[in-house]
Design a protein around this nucleic acid. Structure first.
Lengths: 187, 187, 187, 187
DNA sequence: AATGAATGAGTTTTCATTCAT
DNA sequence: TATGAATGAAAACTCATTCAT
């Protein structure tokens, strides 16, 4: 991928989260990226397309990071690893978390793009299904379990990057994660 | 509160969640509310101020609704009631939930306003503190517990208003809430 | 019709003929008209719509002027009067002639608008039909006769406003018109 | 002349008449011609120069075609031949006619170029002068006679390529031309 | 209090042109 | 010769805000 394309995506990420989609002029994205405005449109065609590509890129990265190290053998330890991967990544990339939260629901990301992004998280459904089948996890609708868990982890990240700043992130995770695990586990 | 003021807030809520802040012209808010553009500025001064007032109004309502029926006597039952109140309200007012999620993090709501809104949720800290002190709830930083729980409930609402549409809301809540309760409860 | 609207149409006429459609920025039209850019869009919505309205206005005026004084009794004298009216008007309004010639064929005027404009010239067909029926005019397809005559008159106007400048317009018309009349008349 | 140069001129002719000068990007002309944008500028230097060269090319062709077969012996038959040549060529090359009509008056063709083009039509003045001198043609200012006649013929072409489509072109010409001839001829 | 015409700064996007390859 | 990525000035159009009524 071209250097300029990458620089544009980087600037866009920061500026969109700081100032919102319509609050960020394309001219500002371009100048922060050190390229001409025309170059932005050369690579992305429209501003909407730019945010769409950025959205996909981040979702792809998040999905990839979360899966790292999972074995498919033990549901609960896979789940903890996925959560830990996600929280670690989220703490290191707070703008990406902020971006996902702001633009998951926002109208600026085309629906088609949103749909395309889901594929990166299908493995989560498999983990939950396995856990429910084996009786380790409470029998919940899988989509519900995913939604609750994901939001729960976002809550942890928000706390660590917000009020909890300065305290040890791992320590907080070790304090917080059992709440989710104990909640999901059967009796 | 004047009828026109109310009509403007109502239109703004719907339009901001559907189209974003900068994506919604004041002229459109005004025309949907059945008033002249000038009237919007007569009541709210600026567009920023309008979204700020809307934000406060909704946070105030959310706080009030959540507290309804709590006794301060039993932590776990108060907590469940608060959760249930919030979820019921959220299902009935999905635009308000969407608005809060979109604009909690967004740069359009002035920070001062965000601060002002927090006062509506101080009672939550009291409940958690009491629970931790009595040993009923795991010893967690209170703000962490609040953040995780709030996000968790948003996950439930998102599921009910999204994929879970058509299924009985109360039934889903009864399935999902124990996950949070079991998680927060000590051993 | 509002003063500002009229001023915008007047500037647009001059500038479009001098510089072409895409060669004329809306900002220039507005400033020449002594209004803000926004005002132009307030009245006309789009630049395309502006040229469309201008086109209709001019065609309407041309049609009205040409008909003035016709009686419907004598074909050849009606025809001469129409021609004379048109040429006189054309000499006094050379930008309108230039505008019609440039934008009759140009892609900037929407086809629908072009169609709408034709209604102003239906009376010409009636005159020619009457003349052909009475035997005074050669039996030609009416549309052909109109096209040839119209272009012929444009040739006269072009000459008078171009090379023939300074010479008496009426004298030139009296020299030129018989060519058309003798040509159309039966043997 | 290089193949690429010719391809560029061909694309430009079609696109300029269809979309106007400023409505046609150089990048589009190049891509339709199957060459890179840079190549267009390699051959023509600027867009203005491109339209100028195209204008000259067409005027040159028109002049050459019109003269074909004239003898200089009989004014009226030469005139008819010129007219017939022009109309035949115009019917076969409607984009060239459209181009000339649109850009004769337009500001995009530099005045110098327009002047240069006139030389191709000087022979017309000679024919008319001869006709007037011999008394065969009404004593008119030569430029006026040329303008009227040229426009008249354009009217015929417009009719044939427009409303008269499907009918025999020659037949229409034979119907229409006598109008011009009878008009120009003395008594 | 309520209106909506008018404003003009600011936005996204286009496109003639250049230049390193 | 020929290319096409990169440029940035300039365009059409939008919209928060004002103000005379």
């Amino acid at each position: 991928m071209s250097d300029k394309r990458k620089a544009i995506l980087d600037s866009a990420l920061v500026l969109f989260t700081e100032r919102g989609f319509h609050g960020t002029p394309t001219s500002l994205i371009a100048s922060e990226a050190g390229v001409a405005t025309g170059t932005l449109f050369h690579y992305f065609g429209t501003k909407e397309n730019l945010i769409g590509e950025l959205y996909l890129e981040i979702k792809r990265e998040a999905g990839k990071i979360m899966r790292e190290g999972t074995t498919g053998k033990d549901v609960l330890s896979d789940l903890k690893l996925v959560a830990s991967n996600y929280v670690s990544w989220g703490i290191k990339n707070p703008e990406k978390i902020k971006f996902m939260e702001q633009f998951c629901l926002s109208p600026y990301v085309p629906d088609a793009t949103r749909g395309e992004a889901i594929s990166n998280f299908l493995f989560l459904a498999e983990i939950f299904e396995a856990g429910i089948e084996s009786g380790e996890i409470k029998p919940l609708p899988v989509e519900l379990a995913i939604k609750m868990s994901a939001e729960f982890l976002n809550g942890i990240i928000a706390y660590i990057t917000g009020e909890g700043q300065g305290r040890d992130a791992e320590e907080i995770f070790d304090l917080a994660y059992p709440v989710l695990e104990d909640g999901l586990r059967t009796g």
